Simulated assay, not measured.
Amino acid sequence: MKKLKVQDLIAVGVYTAIYFLTISICLLVLRFVVPGFHNLFIPAVSALFSGVIYRLVLQRVPRMGAITIMGSVVALFFLMTGHFPLAIVPGILCSFLADVIQYKTHLPKKVRTVTSYIVFSYGLMGPLLPLWFMKNAYVASLKARGKDQVYIQTVFEHVSTQIFLASMVAVLVGAILGYYLGSYLYTKHFQHNRR
């Protein structure tokens, strides 16, 4: 694999900004459609609508490292905006694993890309996982940021094992559907512009 060049990094930056904008729009819509559950299902809905961005990155910047950079930058933004510190880990780890699957494995092309996108999509679970697995530390971090008990109760109102399993399955379904939706949009609107 060739190394990333300056123009590749610029392109990844542009696609990362579009990816982040997509996440933000999905969050805004979910906030009105399913209030109280919007944060819990943002990874799945984002995966559904970000497939075309992923396809564009793979086609326009076919280099090991591009996926890792995109996912890591979003994870760093979560950290900078006050999310639980360990929320960054799944974002970076899943992005790197997606990169490895895409460029270092010998799976059939479609299987490889679908799998890498599924793994990449689970990176957005980073801010949510501490709700289930590090509750006390998460509560402590919220209190340290000046959040009151009412706010904390609201955050954990819908957190349960069933919702966790539903969120994980939803990401899988969203990523698979997102891949095919993204492939359709890419073929219809972008393929003729390939470099």
Results as ranks from 00 to 15, higher is better:
residue 67 I to D: 04
residue 29 V to Y: 04
residue 115 T to H: 02
residue 135 K to G: 12
residue 72 S to A: 13
residue 124 L to D: 03
residue 12 V to P: 07
residue 64 M to L: 11
residue 164 F to I: 00
residue 154 T to N: 13
residue 89 V to I: 01
residue 33 V to L: 12
residue 8 D to C: 12
residue 13 G to S: 01
residue 9 L to N: 12
residue 171 V to N: 01
residue 121 S to M: 10
residue 30 L to E: 14
residue 152 I to W: 09
residue 142 L to R: 08
residue 156 F to P: 02
residue 49 F to C: 08
residue 13 G to H: 06
residue 184 Y to N: 02
residue 167 S to W: 02
residue 137 A to H: 08
residue 49 F to I: 00
residue 76 L to I: 10
residue 35 P to R: 02
residue 53 I to C: 03
residue 117 Y to P: 02
residue 73 V to A: 03
residue 128 L to R: 06
residue 78 F to G: 08
residue 117 Y to T: 05
residue 118 I to V: 13
residue 80 M to Y: 05
residue 62 P to G: 00
residue 177 L to A: 15
residue 48 L to P: 09
residue 40 L to K: 05
residue 138 Y to C: 14
residue 129 L to G: 14
residue 141 S to Y: 03
residue 157 E to A: 14
residue 142 L to N: 11
residue 71 G to Y: 11
residue 162 Q to Y: 07
residue 153 Q to S: 07
residue 24 S to G: 01
residue 95 S to K: 01
residue 136 N to C: 04
residue 14 V to W: 11
residue 83 H to N: 10
residue 142 L to G: 14
residue 149 Q to F: 14
residue 37 F to Y: 03
residue 192 H to T: 12
residue 70 M to P: 05
residue 180 Y to V: 14
residue 176 I to V: 14
residue 18 I to T: 09
residue 39 N to E: 10
residue 190 F to Q: 01
residue 181 L to C: 01
residue 90 P to R: 06
residue 76 L to V: 10
residue 156 F to K: 08
residue 39 N to S: 08
residue 46 S to G: 13
residue 153 Q to V: 05
residue 12 V to A: 00
residue 123 G to V: 07
residue 76 L to G: 03
residue 147 K to M: 15
residue 100 V to Q: 03
residue 178 G to Y: 01
residue 134 M to T: 08
residue 30 L to Q: 14
residue 145 R to H: 13
residue 35 P to Y: 01
residue 127 P to S: 13
residue 53 I to R: 10
residue 121 S to F: 07
residue 116 S to F: 14
residue 1 M to I: 12
residue 118 I to N: 01
residue 91 G to A: 03
residue 39 N to R: 03
residue 102 Q to I: 03
residue 147 K to F: 15
residue 107 L to W: 09
residue 172 L to M: 15
residue 50 S to P: 03
residue 98 A to F: 00
residue 31 R to N: 00
residue 46 S to D: 09
residue 36 G to R: 00
residue 130 P to W: 03
residue 91 G to E: 00
residue 191 Q to F: 04
residue 42 I to L: 15
residue 45 V to N: 00
residue 74 V to L: 15
residue 15 Y to M: 01
residue 147 K to W: 14
residue 127 P to G: 13
residue 49 F to W: 02
residue 46 S to I: 06
residue 39 N to W: 04
residue 162 Q to I: 00
residue 78 F to E: 08
residue 161 T to Y: 15
residue 59 Q to L: 09
residue 140 A to S: 15
